[in-house]
Design a protein around this nucleic acid. Structure first.
Lengths: 290, 290
DNA sequence: ATATGTCTGAATGAAATTTTACAGTATTTT
DNA sequence: AAAATACTGTAAAATTTCATTCAGACATAT
């Protein structure tokens, strides 16, 4: 609420003494299952509390509201505010920067995206997707578009370490039909497609589907048309205060998938990682320390 | 989830495919701050979602409710049922998954990383970096390594739209010395280097520095040795419950930089974006709608 | 015990809300 | 490319909802 930090429940509690008998009875009924009961119609609330309708109208006015609708609006606002987690309320992330600084505005939006996106994910679907990705009997193809190919490649780079038979297809090139030649029914496609959905990607998904391959789709909240062909679809919120969309939430999800898949075949992953280390040591690509 | 396992939000999510464009738009608006927005009047909800009132009435019927009041009652019942466990504690991000599920553990860690990383950023440094990146009198070179090249390319793809004279160098190839031939003292390098710091990248940084170029470094909390040559250094926390490190915080920072730089030269950015759109339209790479 | 002040609840009228019907427009299919 | 289908918004009707008035009941004080 704009005026004060007091919740409506507090205001009722505080004024409990100044209320009459029927009003107190009503107040307790409201607090009984707060705030749900206050969001229904006046008459239902009155009946639930065993008081008359005018009593309700009078009390909310006594609490300082213009009328019952005003009271309800306030309740809804409060609920909306509570929906934002205590962490989201923490609206300065970069200390020393004003809360209106782009650092804080942007971070705020991304945290918001994360919360919304995660809430919509079915854990069962997530687990199923990870099981598919970890199944080494199935070959894995990872597909990205103009912007999303960076995300696709990120997933590819890690999956390559975890397991064998992983390939990376960039839908913006015209070489991708080659990859589809030998696709089998057990194969799995991970497809990335977000706003400015790409026709190439859609065509690719259609053809993969025809061959009987499984499709896991990473898209935005509006869902790429590819989702018609997808077995599993993860949609993330991508809106931020910018001319472009944010891939941060998508990346978070990708990394979580990587962590989960790595656990499935941990033994073989460990083995592959060690062999990779050896090879890196020989190439001197990386520094030993510091 | 006590009575019938699926909440109204789930029902909306599930039927998203059977909904029309305006209805989907409305559905997202409802889920935006659920359930508060659904508890107001039909007309307000319609206005918030930018659809007409009848669209709202039609959709709730499509969802299986007798009418809007019926829908609201169901929402209130759900809220009442949830009563005991409101969204006070949000340590579970993916509702429906146990708090020990990798989805929640991972997200928790990333949020933690974001908080720690952002707190360490000097807003003045951030602004200075953005000013350098937005200065079209300076040529811009973006450098990534084995894993980080995906982040580098993400930044490159967007910078390319915002401004001219941007080049992308992959330090793992051996072609990068060519890029250094014509480097001038005003040039700016953005270098990505995280754990398993790469010797190639260090060498590149050293040579760029010798030529007098400015260096902006994105690294992890332990700081790449490149930071000795860097004018500005952003270090982010990257630890997550996984065998690998997380790039999510780095990406968040990159996207924030993009948003800030885009604002600096907004006019020219807009112009370049429009011209790009035209070219996309001609190539038919993207679908017009849906 | 009676009178006064206050509170409560039923009924009414007014206002707002939801619903239905319809027509225009966009989209898809043939 | 044309026809058919389906979707969306405007406008008006029907229903519900809320505020108010007024008569009666309860408690309290004299």
């Amino acid at each position: 609420m704009p005026d004060n930090a007091l919740t409506i429940a507090d205001r009722i509690q505080n004024q409990l003494d100044q209320l009459t008998r029927a009003e107190r009875q009503l107040a307790h009924s409201i607090l009984e299952n707060y705030p749900a009961s206050g969001l229904g119609s006046l008459s239902v609330l009155a009946k639930d509390a065993d008081v008359s309708a005018p009593t309700v109208a009078r009390m909310v006015q006594k609490l300082g509201f213009k009328g019952y609708p005003d009271f309800q609006t306030a309740l809804r606002e409060e609920l909306k505010a509570k929906g934002k987690t205590p962490m989201a309320r923490h609206d300065t992330w970069a200390e020393g920067a004003p809360s209106g600084h782009v650092l804080n505005r942007f971070t705020e939006a991304v945290i918001d995206n994360i919360r919304h996106s995660l809430a919509q994910i079915e854990p069962a679907e997530f687990d199923a997707a990870c099981a598919l990705l970890g199944d080494t009997d199935r070959r894995l193809h990872i597909v990205g578009g103009r912007i999303t190919h960076t995300m696709a490649e990120y997933l590819f780079l890690h999956m390559q370490v975890i397991r064998q038979d992983v390939s990376y297809i960039q839908s913006t090139t015209n070489t991708w039909p080659h990859y589809l030649l030998d696709v089998k029914a057990e194969d799995v496609f991970v497809i990335f497609d977000v706003r400015r959905y790409e026709s190439n990607t859609l065509k690719l998904a259609e053809m993969a589907r025809e061959k009987g391959a499984k499709i896991i789709l990473f898209t935005d909240q509006w869902r790429s048309p590819v989702h018609a062909y997808a077995d599993i679809c993860f949609s993330t919120r991508i809106v931020v205060p910018s001319a472009w969309d944010s891939a941060a939430t998508t990346l978070l999800l990708i990394e979580t998938v990587i962590a989960a898949v790595q656990d499935i075949n941990w033994d073989s992953t460990l083995d592959r990682m060690e062999r990779l280390e050896d090879m890196f040591d020989q190439t001197k690509l990386f520094r030993k320390f510091t």
